[in-house]
């Protein structure tokens, strides 16, 4: 029986191998692009949602921030709370009704749908990542005069990214598999190939077998690469002490300024031989 299976797979591969490979490529490109765009959306929502809003700030700013939060909330709830397959149908067939235009390009629609769907999940992951960071990190940044955007960009988000890498990996793997629902609007991903080929030659099980193995390979590879990336983001586990030689240049030439001002003015004065 098994020999029968493998000979069927062999003949399928001989005839449709390139079609399957194109399907894999399409799935990968869609999943990678949509996950990346989804991350950007997620981080943007995360930053916008955590803009501090004290009770003594001016009214327009407060209303604006409140509005942003409501919009993001609605976005997350709608796209997290409905099936992606329906979202695809909704957007693809809904556009002509609302805007009088229809998408010619299936790629564009697919990327938009999967991206905003991923973005909705990522928005929550990022928000969770941000609120789990020690408030001391925000205070440390504030105390040296950084504003909200600088604090987020240089201090908080790098740490958030590291903390939510497993979540991003999750989303990516889900996307590899779930982009298969895009066949509903005619996107020819890996799974759509199965439908097409098995429908043409009636070899359902051999084709499904190849699909299973193919998807598993894609996700295992993703897991492996993500682990590597996580390790890289965690940084070196040790550090080297630096000999004081490196400091010879600055040690002794740099005097603590008595008045506030550029610390190098005094050094320059020394160099020019001016009297202090």
């Amino acid at each position: 029986m098994l020999t029968q299976l493998f000979s069927d797979i062999g003949s399928l591969w001989a005839k449709y191998g390139t079609v399957y490979l194109t399907g894999i490529a399409n799935t990968l490109i869609l999943a990678v692009t949509a996950t990346l765009i989804g991350c950007v959306i997620g981080f943007l929502c995360g930053i916008l949602q955590t803009i501090p809003c004290g009770s003594n700030e001016n009214i327009i700013r407060r209303i604006l921030l409140k509005l942003i939060r409501i919009i993001i909330r609605a976005y997350v709830e709608i796209f997290r709370g409905t099936p992606m397959i329906l979202q695809a149908v909704f957007i693809y067939y809904g556009m002509p009704y609302f805007f009088g235009v229809s998408f010619k390009d299936i790629w564009t629609v697919s990327i938009i749908v999967v991206s905003i769907n991923t973005g909705a999940y990522m928005a929550e992951s990022v928000r969770g990542g941000i609120i789990s960071i020690d408030p001391g990190q925000f205070e440390g940044a504030k105390s040296i005069g950084m504003n909200h955007w600088q604090t987020m960009l240089y201090i908080i988000l790098p740490q958030t990214l590291r903390n939510i890498m497993p979540q991003i990996g999750n989303n990516y793997i889900i996307n590899v598999k779930d982009t298969s629902v895009m066949f509903i609007i005619g996107f020819s991903d890996f799974f759509a190939v199965h439908k097409m080929v098995s429908g043409a030659v009636f070899k359902y099980f051999p084709s499904a077998f190849m699909e299973m193995a193919g998807y598993l390979c894609l996700t295992l590879l993703a897991s492996f690469l993500l682990r590597k990336l996580e390790k890289k983001l965690a940084g070196k586990s040790n550090y080297e002490l630096v000999s004081t030689d490196q400091l010879v240049m600055t040690a002794g030439t740099y005097n603590y300024p008595k008045e506030a001002g550029s610390p190098f003015e005094e050094v320059n004065k020394d160099l020019k031989g001016e009297k202090k």
């Binding site: 020690d134 001391g136 990190q137 205070e139 440390g140 940044a141 105390s143 240089y154 201090i155 790098p158 740490q159 590291r162």
Partner: peptide, 10 residues
């Protein structure tokens, strides 16, 4: 600060 608050990512 009492709890240092150094930036952990740097």
């Amino acid at each position: 600060f009492q709890s240092f608050n150094l930036f952990n990512n740097l």
